[in-house]
Amino acid sequence: MQKIEAIIQPSKLDAVKDALVEAGISGITIFEARGHGRQKGHTEFYRGREYAVDLLPKVKLELVVSDEMKDKAVDAIINVARTGRIGDGKIFISRVDEAIRIRNDERGEIAL
């Protein structure tokens, strides 16, 4: 099993969710996140006042999928979240040892 963590633009969330569902993945966890990578902050003026914009709003998705679904999920995210501009986000993948469904103690991929 693989855990996929993806940091994406908030505006892409709905499209990414739809793409994942279409790819056959329905269980995802979503976090509201803030941060920046190479896309650094800047200063904005609003009606004569100055506001620092150093961290940008992002959405973080977490999903755990079977090994064979990994590429499908990653492709689904990339296809819709990519605009080609700085700030599109990143995907991190790591191995998961076990999954347990709390309700009935099912284990392994069946618990996903």
Binding site: P10, F45, Y46, R47, P57
Partner: peptide
């Protein structure tokens, strides 16, 4: 209402006002 949403709202307000 989370700080995250409040921040997005503020950004939109600022951008639209400008």
């Amino acid at each position: 209402l989370t700080p995250w949403k409040a921040e997005s709202l503020w950004r939109l307000h600022m951008g639209a006002a400008n």
